[in-house]
């Protein structure tokens, strides 16, 4: 995938087992840090309805939508629980010199 790396924030701006919102241009993303310390990124809005996943709860490798409790697997974006049935788009993430970057096209 072509695209450019965009700096999101410093590593310690996302708490462990949590998620933040990241807006870039017209687009919005959710950037996650799991309890194991891994970082991931996905589209910001739930695929079921327009609610931002950064308001949702991270439990292990799962993000739960704050409105209807649909769930996605964070690393793959796979839909895991009704009412969501469409997978979430994910983006590559890297950590460099204590900053988190995501690659968007």
């Amino acid at each position: 995938m072509s695209g450019e790396w965009i700096e999101v924030c410093a590593v310690d701006e996302i708490e462990e087992e949590d998620v933040i919102r990241f807006d870039h241009g017209e687009r919005t993303f959710a950037v996650y840090r799991t309890d194991k310390g891994h970082f991931y990124a996905s589209d910001g809005y739930c695929t079921h309805e327009k609610f931002h996943l950064s308001n949702g709860l991270v439990m292990g490798n799962v993000i739960e939508c704050p409105k209807h409790n649909g769930r996605f697997d964070i690393p793959t974006g796979a839909a895991k629980r009704a009412p969501v049935c469409v997978d979430l788009r994910t983006y590559p993430v890297k950590v460099e010199s204590d900053s988190v970057f995501i690659k968007i096209d």
Binding site: F51, H52, N55, G56, L57, E64, P66, K67
Partner: peptide, 11 residues
Amino acid sequence: SGGSLAKHIRI
């Protein structure tokens, strides 16, 4: 406002 408290309510 909006979804700001959702996480906390969920916990």
